[in-house]
């Protein structure tokens, strides 16, 4: 068998072991045979390379359907991030603009309200009422000190207390009244909060014509709003107080006149104005005693 035939059989894959051994010996002993073998190998490699290139070129013309954006990893990450973002945004909006849910949560802890009747004599001509959801007023004594147009605090709320509709008081004495700081219970956690009013205060209270003590506003304290640390909002006949208030006692005074109504917050020995005709969250603005008196006088 000539070496050309052996080489051909080799590249056809039909070489037997004996023939392979023979070809190996021939190539080692004769460089010409080795060169011919290498030459044939170059040709066949070239043919294989050519064919491979043709097939690849054909495959490259195949149109691969584009993966939908949501099918790609980038798309999935984007959609996932968007969904998470939307959830957070939704949650944030719910927290910011839906305090009612928190109200319900807070309402579960019903406050204990103790109230005591003040000397109540209803004046038919009186138009102003003071609402006192959480009040205990002692009117046993009477003093001569009085301040024109003063308002006697008759309402007390704590962070734990609210909705005290059962405590309605009527105050009627035609003498000027003066705001009286309530005697707050020793502990903020004390469920019973008393407001002690001395006789002088009683007189002052009664200076408003026919003051009625009613409970119309539900008060809710919201402490988890970073944005609002000392703010309020009046909505749906509810007062939302934003802030921790040092976990202390605050009081809400509602003064009802014939045609208008004013509400004040008493906290840390200061009075703050509560505007009822704003639904937005507003900062609590301090008002001094004189201004408070003027407001009350204006209500009469």
């Amino acid at each position: 068998m000539e070496y050309q035939e052996l080489i051909e059989k080799h590249f056809d894959g039909n070489l037997s072991e004996g023939e392979a051994s023979l070809l190996e010996d021939l190539m080692q002993s004769n460089p010409e045979i080795k060169n011919e073998f290498d030459f044939q190998q170059d040709l066949i490699e070239g043919l294989k390379s050519k064919r491979k290139s043709e097939l690849k070129a054909r495959l490259n013309t195949v149109e691969i359907p584009a993966v939908p954006f949501f099918g790609t990893m980038t798309g999935q990450i984007t959609i996932g991030a968007s969904a998470v973002g939307a959830i957070f945004l939704f949650g944030w909006l719910m927290i910011q603009f839906s305090p009612n849910e928190e109200l319900e949560a807070v309402s579960e802890t019903s406050p204990v309200v103790e109230s005591e009747a003040i000397a109540s004599k209803e004046n038919e001509e009186a138009g102003a009422t003071i609402e006192a959801p959480v009040v205990t007023i002692d009117t046993s004594k009477e003093t001569g000190s009085s301040t024109k147009n003063g308002v006697k605090p008759t309402v007390k709320e704590t962070a734990d207390n609210k909705s005290k509709k059962e405590s309605e008081k009527v105050v009627s004495e035609p003498t000027p009244i003066k705001p009286v700081q309530p005697a707050i219970a020793d502990s903020f956690t004390d469920e019973k909060v008393r407001v002690n009013v001395n006789e002088n205060n009683t007189q002052e209270l009664s200076s408003l014509n026919d003051l009625k003590i009613n409970n119309t506003l539900d008060i809710n304290n919201i402490t988890n709003k970073r944005k609002f640390q000392f703010h309020y909002q009046v909505r749906d006949n509810q007062l939302f107080l934003y802030g921790t208030f040092d976990k202390g006692v605050y009081e809400i005074y509602e003064v009802n006149a014939k045609e208008s109504k004013r509400v004040f917050l008493y906290y840390n020995k200061e009075y703050y104005r509560i505007l009822l005709n704003h639904k937005k969250v507003l900062p609590l603005e301090k008002i001094d005693q004189d201004e408070l008196n003027e407001i009350i006088e204006a209500l009469n």
């Binding site: 590249f11 170059d42 040709l43 066949i44 490699e45 070239g46 043919l47 294989k48 390379s49 050519k50 064919r51 491979k52 043709e54």
Partner: peptide, 27 residues
């Protein structure tokens, strides 16, 4: 360089010749 020469020579073959050889040796 050798591969380039071989590929050039393959291209000189007729279409049938190329196919026969490629089908036989590659496929």
């Amino acid at each position: 360089e050798k591969a380039r020469i071989v590929l050039g020579c393959i291209d000189q073959l007729g279409d049938t010749c190329k196919k026969v050889l490629m089908y036989y040796y590659y496929d």
